[in-house]
Structures are given as C-alpha cells and as structure tokens.
C-alpha cells in the first residue's frame, strides 16, 4: 500500500497561553534536554505601563521549515529533514560546528555542551511515529498547540487553517516556517 504523503505542522493559539511553561517542562522530561537548554520556550512581550498594560505570551520552538536554512548550511548532512517535514539532527554525524545555529532565524537550536552536538525540537518524532502527539501538545492545559498533518483534509489543523486567520513568523527569511500562529 502506498503511503500517503504527510506534512506535520503545529498551529498555535497563543491567546490561550497562560505562561505556565508546562510545555517546556514536558519537553525536557520527554527528551532528556540538558540543564540550561530548552527545545521550546514562551516569549513574553510587555506593552504599556501600569495600570494600562498587557503581556502577550507566545510559545515558540523549531518551525520545521519547508526550506530549512539549517539543513542547507550543514557541512556533513547531520541536519536533515524527513519527508513528513520534521527537521532532525543526526547526532552521529554532527561535528558541532554550530553553523546551523547561526543559520536559524528563530534561535531554535542549542549546543549540547557535554555531547558536543547541536540539539533541537524533534516534534517528538519518536512519539509521532507511534501515532501519538508531541509531549508539549499533550501536556498543555489550555490547549494552545494543535498538532497534525497538513495533507490530511480531515485533520483539526487543516480545519483551523482553512477557517481562521493566522500568521507565520519572519516569512521574509524564505525558510517557509510551519508554526502557524492564529490571530
């Protein structure tokens, strides 16, 4: 049976985010991320002054871009992209030159000091391959993130992107980011 083409992505409804950081903790626990490094984060933007003020929370991680510049610049091919769009680092091939970290417009990668290799969000590919959803998506108490396959017309993210307005971050870099932020 021919496999149907897949394209995994995340839709993020950042207005639901309460900055509890459960996603960051779940990710660290799931993926054994070293102390001091994070594969996802919550950006805070403060506006105004008391009493007229607001804070926006915006979760961010690897955008698993359509044209990932980190993969392009990697001299050994350690940074690579699966057919379903997930961008990964092959630890065994990574020489630790950190060129990919400079090439990433979203600062989504970190350097694993102990192993001397670069680490990043894998979209929990080990869970996704078993039919589960990424840890950050599963743990979120306010359901900020929606994970799914863009090629699947019956999926929730397909519906959200068809019916809601959204933006992607820094599209001008030409990376084709695949984190969709609902407006």
């Amino acid at each position: 049976m021919a496999m149907k083409k897949k394209r995994y992505a995340l839709v993020i409804d950042s207005r639901k985010c309460i900055n509890c950081k459960a996603c960051a903790v779940a990710c660290k626990a799931e993926n054994d991320v070293p102390v001091g490094n994070f594969r996802n984060r919550i950006n805070e933007e403060r506006k105004g002054e008391y009493p007229k003020l607001s804070i926006d929370f915006e979760p961010e991680q690897c955008h698993h871009c359509a044209e990932p510049s980190c993969v392009r610049v990697c001299p050994t091919g350690a940074s690579w992209q699966r057919k379903d769009g997930i961008v990964l680092v092959n630890d065994g091939e990574c020489i630790g030159c950190r060129y990919c970290m400079l090439a990433c417009p979203y600062d989504a990668r970190y350097f694993h000091e102990e192993d001397g290799v670069v680490g990043k969000c894998t979209l929990c590919s080990h869970r996704v391959d078993k039919g589960e959803i990424p840890a950050c998506v599963a743990t979120c108490p306010s359901k900020v993130r929606v994970f799914g396959d863009l090629e699947d017309a019956t999926s929730r993210i397909h519906e959200l992107l068809a019916t809601r307005r959204y933006r992607v971050k820094e599209p001008q870099t030409g990376n084709g980011p695949q984190l969709y932020y609902l407006l």
Binding site: R72, V73, C74, P75, T76, C94, G96, R98, H112, G116
Partner: peptide, 26 residues
Amino acid sequence: LDLGNWYRFYKLFTHFRWESPMSIGS
C-alpha cells in the same frame, strides 16, 4: 579545535554538500 567534537572533523571530507559554504570551504 572549535568543533564540539573535534575528532569528527574528518566527516567534513566524507561528505560533499555544495549548498553548504562550510563544506565547499573545507
């Protein structure tokens, strides 16, 4: 020496990636 894994530098020469300036440069 600046590499995270300096002893893996030979991997630069077991691959050729024309899109990577570092690969061409090495």
